[in-house]
């Protein structure tokens, strides 16, 4: 089973996770820029973070045979902090880079006017840079948030076919699907979606444009939930082609809209045995 995790925060994960992911079949990941738990207070800490997403993290991933890409953005939570919003002016130079395959995560958290501005601005950046957008839908007041998100997308220059609406669930999938967007589902141990509910949603709504991710981060989450969903689909009678569509071809097609997806891993020169990460550095 080949797996493309279209949303995972590897910066927060260990090398054990990379190893387990590779063993489970994960070969490509996209790491969207998000918040870090601890709020940031200046644009400089964003740029260090973005540099890491384009430097250290792909290097780490490559050592485990995983091709790492990223999405760059100011996330909705921190869009509310005027100390952070100047990072919006720094985004264009990042959105040019190789391996940046989307603008994201953007969207709503609390649906404030500041979030409206950041979302509108960054949808325009996506359109200007030929990139698709990964749009987070809010966890609180979700159906209202989805509608407001779709309104923002429709008012923007970015076609809805270049938008992946993420963290969908039973209450939002139908409206999202009717919009023509790509459909993202985050499968978590406790919250968001689980494997069985995911199978039920796919039974009801089909596999077309459906992407499943672990959204694993620094919270309670599991980086091989993608594999668990693949197994659950097979157990439920879906065939290998269905699983390949959801776990590989759909994310390849969506992020391939960027023209920047490189599915090969360029292994660093260092041997595995000699490698600084496996050895824990000096």
């Amino acid at each position: 089973m080949r797996i493309f995790d279209p949303h995972i925060h590897m910066t927060s994960r260990t090398t054990d996770d990379y190893e387990a992911m590779h063993q489970a079949g994960v070969r490509v990941v996209v790491e969207p820029a998000f918040w870090l738990g601890q709020p940031r207070t200046s644009p400089a800490s964003f740029t260090d973070y973005f540099d890491s997403l384009l430097g250290w993290e792909p290097f780490r991933a490559a050592q485990y045979g995983i091709a790492h890409h990223c999405a760059i953005a100011l996330n909705p939570k921190e869009a509310n902090d005027p100390r952070c919003t100047p990072v919006l002016d720094l985004l264009p130079r990042y959105l040019l880079k190789d391996r940046v395959v989307a603008v994201g995560e953007i969207g709503y958290d609390s649906m404030t006017p500041a979030e409206d501005l950041a979302l509108e601005h960054q949808l325009q950046l996506a359109a200007d840079h030929g990139l698709p957008a990964l749009v987070h839908t809010p966890h609180r007041d979700k159906p209202t948030g989805l509608r407001r998100t779709l309104d923002a997308v429709r008012a923007s220059e970015l076609p809805v076919e270049r938008v992946l609406l993420d963290h969908l669930n039973e209450t939002t999938v139908k409206e999202a699907k009717d919009s023509g967007s790509w459909l993202g589902f985050s499968v978590y141990p406790d919250t968001k979606m689980d494997e069985e509910r995911m199978v039920a949603v796919i039974k009801a709504f089909g596999t077309e444009k459906v992407l499943v991710n672990s959204a694993a981060d620094w919270g309670r989450s599991d980086p091989i939930k993608t594999r668990r969903v693949g197994d659950a689909l097979l157990d439920a009678g879906f065939d290998e082609d269905d699983v390949d569509l959801v776990l590989w071809r759909n994310p390849v097609a969506f992020y391939g809209l960027s023209g920047r997806l490189a599915l090969d891993v360029t292994a660093p020169d260092a041997t595995h045995e000699g490698n600084s990460i496996l050895r824990g550095g000096e």
Partner: peptide
């Protein structure tokens, strides 16, 4: 403007010519 044209080319060299 904000960035020289050759810096734009530098950023996209991988996807244009292959890693």
């Amino acid at each position: 403007g904000p960035i020289s044209v050759w810096e734009l080319r530098l950023a996209e060299a991988g996807r244009r010519c292959g890693p």
